[in-house]
Amino acid sequence: MSLETEIKFTLNGRPVAVRVPATMKTLTMLREVLGLTGTKYACGEGECGACTVKVDGKTLNSCLMHAVDCDGRELVTIEGLKTPEGMNPMQQAFVDHGAVQCGFCMPGMIMQADYLVGENPRLTREEAQRGLEGNLCRCTGYTKVLDAVASVAEKKCCGRL
């Protein structure tokens, strides 16, 4: 057993304190220690984006980040996008545009898409394509994903969101 460290951080707006081994990755902590299985493992080496979460407002691959490095930070996972009022606009757009098939890549894809539009409400389709390059999907061919992102960007841009 490797040495355990206590860390404190904000997860989806709530404070958490957990003890984690030094070698543990954030993805494993989320899934196995904190029971948030929305974030997915699909490669474990930063190549697929299925494990994408937001840390201090920026997306990254949680399979690469050590859990201890979450200390003092602010994490948002796919579970944290939904509000009591319902799905976040990006989640809703993915559902409405038929962008979800098996759905396994979708938590990461939606986190990244939401981040891109948050950063740049005037996001073009080409920018969205480039911004989603690190998120692999085997089912959809990305077309409906991009339709969904474009629809949110358009609404954001004309102030409807």
């Binding site: 299985t37 796919i78 579970e79 989640q91 559902v95 409405d96 038929g98 979800v100 759905g103």
Partner: peptide, 21 residues
């Protein structure tokens, strides 16, 4: 017509419990 997948909302919100989970 265009009909939404009934499993999409749970998948888009990370709620779906896949066998892997």
């Amino acid at each position: 017509q265009r009909v939404k997948k009934p499993d999409a909302p749970d998948k888009a919100t990370g709620k779906t419990r896949y066998i892997n989970d």
